[in-house]
């Protein structure tokens, strides 16, 4: 097991190095003008050239790359042209916001996806199954930004059930920063009103992100359960006179859970990707929105910082899922 973990960690470092390298070269070779993008079309040429020199953008690409790697070893992505702060400092603010959103969305997706998937498999070809398939199809087919706009239109504008966007109401100040997770920090500070307000603001984007991933988890759960329910040991369990609930959850679901777990791991990665659009629609100040703004303004250091962090999360979630396989299925040994 330890050998496997070490091997995976080495691979993890190689993957991150690859992501940084590819992102660096793509972002630096595109025929664009990052300094001009920040300074605007009116900026005098001399100023653009001066800033390029200051940022080292006039150096040969190889030299820029080695300089960048040296900084990266110390978790130093450089300064964001747009926010004028260290990128690592920005990530410390925006990353927890996305984590908070992703975890709530994942929670919604796991609860709903598994429940609906199991019901759908057990009630195969009945109305519950058909309804769940429509629900999944809508979730999978609908683009996140469109779903987000629909939510704002219906749940905010017509029903007044969710706020239109943001992370807190305009009149509420953020809690003192400890973890950057508003839900946790507000509880630590004893600011319950802030806690509820933060939770209220998470509802819209979390439901959108959650619905999309619910659909995937639901489909995998259904097909995996259907496969297991046809196995002979399930028939044996039923013949033994076990209660249906025990058959489904103890015997069938546990054996069907490996693909579901894989899907959940992948879903977490998708959530980080989906947050890019969802956060923009809801004006939610997380890593996704930070990444979008950085891409649009060619803020190269911020782009590499955001992409690296997302890649780390993706690789870590896959690693955790792989390790959990062994816990779920005793036959799997590393």
């Amino acid at each position: 097991m330890l050998k496997y973990v070490i091997k995976r960690l080495i691979l993890f470092v190689i993957v991150i190095f690859g992501v940084v390298t590819i992102t660096f070269f793509i972002s630096h070779v595109i025929p664009a003008d990052p300094v001009g993008a920040i300074l605007g079309e009116n900026a005098p040429q001399e100023l653009v050239e001066k800033m390029e020199r200051q940022l080292g953008l006039d150096l040969p690409l190889g030299q820029q790359y080695t300089r960048y790697l040296k900084g990266l070893i110390n978790w130093n992505f450089g300064i964001s042209l747009r926010t004028q702060k260290q990128v690592s400092e920005d990530l410390r603010v925006y990353f927890p916001a996305t984590m908070e959103l992703a975890f709530l969305a994942l929670f919604i997706a796991i609860i709903l996806g598994i429940s609906i998937g199991v019901i759908s498999a057990v009630k195969r070809n009945q109305w519950q199954d058909n309804a769940s398939r429509v629900f999944s199809l809508v979730g999978i087919s609908m683009p996140a930004f469109w779903l987000g706009l629909l939510f704002i239109l219906i749940l905010y504008y017509h029903l007044g059930l969710i706020p239109a966007g943001g992370r807190l109401s305009p009149h509420i100040s953020p809690p003192p920063m400890v973890s950057g997770l508003y839900l946790l920090d507000s509880l630590i500070a004893g600011q319950f009103r802030t806690f509820w307000d933060a939770l209220y603001h998470l509802l819209g984007p979390a439901l959108v992100l959650g619905w999309i991933q619910t659909a995937y988890i639901c489909r995998v759960t259904r097909s995996s359960m259907l496969e297991v329910l046809n196995e002979e040991y399930i028939r044996t369990a039923r013949v033994k006179g076990l209660r249906e609930r025990v058959v489904i959850f103890k015997h069938a679901f546990r054996n069907a859970s490996i693909p579901i777990l894989t899907m959940i791991g992948i879903s977490f990665g998708y959530m980080l990707e989906g947050s890019v659009l969802t956060e923009t629609v809801f004006g939610y100040p997380g890593l996704g929105r930070y990444a979008v703004n950085s891409f649009l303004s060619l803020d190269l250091n911020a782009v590499i910082g955001s992409v690296t962090l997302i890649a780390i999360c993706y690789a870590l979630s896959n690693l955790i899922v792989d390790l959990l396989y062994a816990a779920l299925d005793p036959r799997i040994k590393y």
């Binding site: 704002i152 239109a164 966007g165 943001g166 809801f282 004006g283």
Partner: peptide
């Protein structure tokens, strides 16, 4: 307040 989308 930051509302990036005009439709929103």
């Amino acid at each position: 307040i930051d509302v990036p989308e005009s439709s929103s």
